[in-house]
């Protein structure tokens, strides 16, 4: 347990020093929002109707992209071999890394979501942020499972992760946008989102470990 905690803190420290980890995903999130506004046009009623869907899509794509190098970089520079010699299970190591990565890349999106809602003329930004808070762990987990599967692929490997993770993220998107649109803080959508995140927390580290062990074979 101590080793997992140490890896968590190390991941947090290293990530905080690297803009590639915490800043670029955030910039992409804002860029996606701006492009969406350009596509939708400046009509506030239309923007308001689309706001939950757009904010959720922006968050999911930002998470999908920023997680892509989570395993391929450690494999390339040898860190993964070192991680696998640690006296804790690979799943625990991955869980520690995923929690750290969630704090660095997904948590800022949750904080920014109310501002994004204001920009889209939506008045319940808090609810959108809450739905992201509940659902983004699942999105990150599946994105990481995809990234672990694509980590060793050559050439177009970068597209493999999102291609695998995309269908699995569908329920998170459905319940996330559903919760933000329903206006209910503790409705069935919120509970389904929480359930999806707990389920992802249970299986995604193991799935990542399975794929990463195959890379090391």
């Amino acid at each position: 347990m101590n080793a997992a905690l140490a890896i968590f803190l190390r991941e947090l420290r290293i990530g905080a020093r690297r803009p590639a980890v915490w800043a670029f995903g955030l910039a992409f999130f804002l860029l996606f929002l701006m492009l969406s506004a350009l596509v939708l046009g400046p009509d506030p009623a239309r923007l308001r109707a689309a706001a939950p869907a757009i904010v959720w899509l922006a968050a999911v794509f930002s998470i999908l992209l920023s997680v892509q190098t989570l395993f391929s970089e450690p494999i390339e520079d040898g860190e993964q071999d070192w991680l696998m010699t640690q006296p804790v299970s690979l799943s625990a190591i991955i869980a520690a890394r995923l929690i750290a990565r969630w704090l660095l890349t997904a948590a800022p999106l949750v904080v920014l979501a109310p501002a994004a809602a204001i920009a889209f003329a939506h008045d319940s930004g808090g609810l959108i942020a809450l739905s992201l808070l509940l659902g983004s762990p699942a999105a990150l987990g599946y994105a990481a499972a995809g990234a672990a599967s694509g980590a060793g692929a050559k050439g177009a490997g970068g597209i493999l992760g999102p291609l695998i993770a995309g269908p699995l993220i569908a329920p998170v998107l459905i319940f996330g946008v559903g919760m933000a649109q329903s206006g209910a803080m503790f409705g069935p959508e919120a509970r389904a989102l929480l359930a999806a995140s707990l389920f992802a927390a249970a299986i995604c580290p193991a799935a990542c470990a399975l794929a990463l062990r195959a890379q090391a074979d």
Partner: peptide, 26 residues
């Protein structure tokens, strides 16, 4: 997604393990 793994990951044994993990997750 499964077919993409088989075409992008080498060698075949590694692709098999990864595609297996993805199929079980799916």
């Amino acid at each position: 997604g499964l077919m993409a793994i088989w075409s992008l990951v080498e060698p075949t044994q590694r692709a098999a393990r990864i595609a297996g993990a993805v199929a079980l997750l799916g």
